[in-house]
């Protein structure tokens, strides 16, 4: 029988083996979901044992990656999308990734500030993850955390990457639908995006549609990408169109018959 720590706390008494933990996760128990992600983050054996038990009959969720420049409005867009998918009756999981400071090893995980209205909704699970030295815009545990959420019955899962510049494009390997969020007034950055965000993203969102330069940025980006939308996440304007664009990408992806995502 395995124990999670030297001191036993309440959950440890309840969950004293990987199979019990896996069972509680399958029942959708939030504490068990949260604890399993922590164990996987720490690379503990119990976590891997439990994960193996889960993957046998894990259902498949729609995984939607949300990436883009720092401060462009990724979290605010996710907040709106969570509300919309909840209205459609889905159980929604969110993995929100922020950077770990390479100097101190600490991190300020602030994405969920924009999503706190969903905290009391039993059908929404939000987890903040720090990169802990992993490059590519995600935490190393992201793929495994997705599997945990799938097993717990979350059928729509959002992954918010760290604010990316270029090169942090791991999201493309985890999510079959990737939305890139940019703010108006890109200027020269459009050039840089061509070999980066514009390549991996299936849908480009020009957020902050209330900004006077939004339409110009929209026109510029439309020259380079077939699916560019204007959204004002602050008010929810454009969110239905964004959901339609995501659905279209999911449909294309299914037609291609590709696996839902690379193995974690």
């Amino acid at each position: 029988m395995t124990r999670f720590g030297i001191h036993l706390n309440k959950l440890d008494k309840q969950v004293d083996s990987a199979s019990t933990l896996a069972e509680l996760v399958k029942q959708g128990q939030v504490r068990a979901v949260a604890r399993l992600i922590t164990l996987l983050e720490r690379g503990e054996q119990e976590g891997h044992d439990a994960l193996r038990l889960l993957e046998v009959d894990a259902p498949r969720a729609a995984i939607i990656g949300v990436t883009g420049y720092p401060g462009a409005g990724k979290s605010t867009v996710v907040d709106q999308l969570v509300a919309a998918y909840r209205r459609l009756g889905h159980k929604v999981g969110v993995l929100a990734v922020d950077m770990t400071s390479p100097l101190t090893g600490g991190a300020l995980l602030g994405d969920r500030i924009r999503m706190q209205r969903h905290t009391l909704d039993q059908g929404v699970y939000i987890r903040s993850l720090a990169t802990r030295g992993h490059h590519g815009g995600l935490a190393a545990v992201t793929g495994e955390a997705v599997s945990v959420l799938e097993a717990a019955g979350y059928d729509v899962i959002f992954i918010e990457t760290v604010g990316v510049g270029q090169g942090e494009l791991d999201i493309a390997t985890v999510a079959p639908a990737v939305v890139a969020i940019v703010a108006p007034g890109l200027g020269d950055e459009v050039q840089a995006m061509k070999a980066g965000l514009l390549e991996v993203a299936h849908v480009i969102v020009v957020n902050k549609g209330d900004h006077p330069e939004a339409d110009r940025t929209l026109r510029e980006l439309k020259e380079w990408h077939r699916s560019v939308l204007k959204v004002t996440a602050m008010t929810g304007q454009g969110i239905p169109e964004l959901i339609a664009a995501i659905a279209e990408q999911q449909r294309l992806h299914d037609l291609e018959g590709a696996p839902t995502r690379a193995a974690p």
Binding site: G106, L108, L109, G110, S128
Partner: peptide
């Protein structure tokens, strides 16, 4: 955070 912790604000 500066002391190396993960802070959820």
């Amino acid at each position: 955070r500066d002391a190396g912790m993960e802070v959820i604000y």
